[in-house]
């Protein structure tokens, strides 16, 4: 029987891989935001699995994941605001189009 910790760690790794796949293959900022959430979820899952299935402190692991969730909320809010500002200025959120520093196109 495979150890449960291995299974949980592999699923967290899978979330990491899926997040990276989406993060690079997406063309827009909104799609990249979705992929980043996948990455953060994998991080939380691996921390909780490592805390619950080893002698490490359970409370510490759960708190770490709650902190990750808080950070994810803050990050999503900020990125939403940035997306709105970028959309106002460039009329698009495609990453390839965002190649301007101040006024001069690169």
């Amino acid at each position: 029987m495979i150890s449960p910790l291995i299974l949980f760690m592999l699923s967290a790794l899978l979330l990491l891989a899926l997040g990276l796949l989406g993060l690079i293959s997406r063309r827009t900022l909104v799609g990249m935001l979705i992929s980043v959430e996948l990455l953060l979820n994998g991080a939380g899952l691996s921390v909780v699995a490592a805390a619950q299935l080893t002698p490490a402190s359970n409370a510490a692991g759960q708190l770490a994941t709650i902190f990750i969730m808080g950070l994810a909320a803050a990050e999503a809010t900020l990125v939403l605001a940035m997306i709105i500002v970028i959309h106002r200025r460039f009329e698009t959120v495609e990453t390839k189009a965002l190649a301007t520093l101040k006024d001069s196109p690169l």
Binding site: I34, E37, N41, M69, A72, A73, A76, H87, V93
Partner: peptide, 30 residues
């Protein structure tokens, strides 16, 4: 993993809040 509190937090924060936020981001952008 025997952490029901985290499961509820996951539902509340991620499914409840972050998904709605991303949906706003999709709607507010062409």
């Amino acid at each position: 993993l025997a952490s029901p509190f985290l499961a509820f937090m996951q539902l509340l924060i991620y499914v409840g809040a972050i998904c709605i936020l991303i949906f706003f981001a999709i709607m507010l952008v062409k």
